[in-house]
């Protein structure tokens, strides 16, 4: 190894020890106090929504038929005694058909949050693959895909969703998950375009960098260049968009459910809890307040986290 013996002083000395990338990102993320608070709130809300219904003694959907009169419309902290003499206490009261409101709030969170997470993950993955394909191959592939994207972006989403959910309502029984699945598909249908645009833009600049040519010269296939080089390098902005998107889907679900096109009874979601509560807003204002407050909290938290991630993942900032 004659060449190896030509050690070049400082050149071959170990590169400076650096903290891992993860630690660096976390340090920059922590500078945003609100985002750290947001992270705690999100964690708490996920526990609330996914662990809560399991721990709750009440069922979120079944109605206590026999004792309906005594159980319904209880105020927070209210309680009633059934024929067997057992007293039931409801921390947040009950709704107009006697279901425990806290349990419904937790179960509604489970529906809203799982919908948001699944929708965002699916639309980001679809958007990344389609956007990377468009950007990488360019030419007519790019032209066709981006015209489809433009078309979807020009559609007014609310009216389209209303029409679609009316049309699809007939098939709700045949689809596993029913209204939630339909809502998810509609959200993904509108959601992937943003990710596709973002990734396409990233790939357009990445593919002119020499490491792309190097991979080509090594004989790597287009598929492997996209999967191994293009996508990992465009992950940071996608992560930010996904985080900001979660809050958006929760709010979108709430808006649609509020209008009656979203998650259908008897399944609760934060949106339809809000809708069902509006009839009783004068007598029981707290039923509007709780789901509304949780929607506000989760979307604010995700927005703060997204903003902090944007700064933390920016490689130009080295703090």
């Amino acid at each position: 190894m004659s060449v190896a013996e030509l050690s070049f002083g400082a050149e071959t000395l170990a590169a400076p020890q650096e903290a891992g990338r993860g630690a660096l990102i976390w340090r920059r993320f922590k500078r945003h106090r609100l985002a750290v608070v947001g992270l705690w709130i999100v964690a708490a809300l996920f526990l609330f929504a996914f662990l809560g219904p399991v721990l709750s003694p009440y069922n979120s959907t079944s109605i206590p038929t026999a004792d309906l009169i005594r159980a319904r419309d209880l105020d927070p902290g209210g309680s009633w005694t059934d024929r067997a003499g057992v007293t039931h206490t409801h921390i947040l009261g009950t709704d107009s058909v006697g279901r425990d409101y806290l349990t419904r709030l937790m179960e509604g969170g489970r529906v809203s949050l799982s919908l948001a997470i699944i929708v965002i993950m699916t639309s980001m993955i679809i958007g990344m693959l389609i956007g990377a394909t468009a950007g990488y191959f360019g030419g007519w592939v790019d032209a066709v895909i981006m015209r489809v994207v433009d078309f979807i972006l020009t559609l007014p989403d609310l009216p389209v969703i209303m029409v679609l959910s009316v049309i699809l309502a007939d098939y709700i029984q045949d689809i596993p998950g029913g209204s939630v699945t339909i809502l998810g598909i509609i959200f993904v249908g509108f959601g992937w375009v943003g990710a596709a645009r973002l990734v396409r833009g990233m790939v357009l600049s990445l593919k002119t960098q020499e490491f792309t040519d190097a991979a080509k010269a090594l004989g790597a296939s287009n598929r492997s260049i996209i999967l191994r080089h293009m996508l990992p390098n465009s992950l940071a902005p996608i992560l930010v968009a996904a985080t900001l998107g979660v809050g958006g889907v929760v709010v979108g679900e709430a808006a649609l459910s509020y209008l009656g096109f979203g998650v259908k009874a008897p399944f609760p979601s934060w949106g339809n809890l809000l809708q069902n509560a509006q009839r009783d807003v004068m007598s029981s204002p707290f039923r509007v307040f709780y789901p509304g407050f949780l929607i506000l909290l989760i979307s604010l938290s995700f927005n703060f986290i997204g903003d902090a991630l944007r700064d933390a993942l920016d490689p130009r900032l080295k703090l």
Partner: peptide
């Protein structure tokens, strides 16, 4: 091939 720009010729990730 060996490239000119040692900064863009290696995948940063």
């Amino acid at each position: 091939i060996i490239f000119q720009d040692p900064f863009s010729s290696l995948d940063p990730r």
